[in-house]
């Protein structure tokens, strides 16, 4: 009996898993913690859930704290955010992102990437 209840709970969880959840960073390009040879013109953040563009954003700063992005926008699929970058020299950069998922949960995070192998 208890086993059946547990199994039902598991199926319930698995069934609803695809429905909604907090939007977490699934992957990024350039990748989290990576070093890229040449400066990218934009950054792409891919999230685990659809997000609301009006309440989501990202900024990129260089090692001295100067902002090097020119804005972020959420793509039509609602799981990708594109962040346009100014021409950036070799160095270390910090990305700060915040999103509101379509089921109204807020999340945020940050990571670094490096240009030019410094």
């Amino acid at each position: 009996m208890i086993g059946r209840i547990a199994l039902s709970a598991l199926f319930l969880a698995a069934g609803i898993a695809a429905a909604s959840a907090h939007a977490m960073l699934d992957h990024a390009s350039p990748a989290v913690g990576s070093t890229v040879a040449s400066a990218p013109s934009r950054l792409t953040l891919t999230f685990t859930q659809p997000i609301e563009g009006a309440f989501s954003g990202a900024t990129v700063h260089n090692a001295s704290g100067q902002r090097v992005d020119t804005g972020a926008r959420v793509g039509p699929g609602k799981t990708e955010m594109q962040v346009s970058l100014k021409p950036i020299p070799p160095g270390s950069y910090k990305v700060n992102w915040h999103v509101l998922s379509v089921d109204t949960h807020k999340t945020q995070g940050s990571f670094n990437f490096t240009v030019g192998g410094r």
Partner: peptide, 25 residues
């Protein structure tokens, strides 16, 4: 089970919520 993710607009949110769902914010 994370009820706030499974049922974000019913039992997964505070009874007296002040705004958006902020459990994992």
């Amino acid at each position: 089970l994370y009820l706030d993710d499974m049922f974000p607009n019913s039992i997964g949110r505070p009874i007296f919520a002040t705004g958006t769902n902020t459990t994992r914010t």
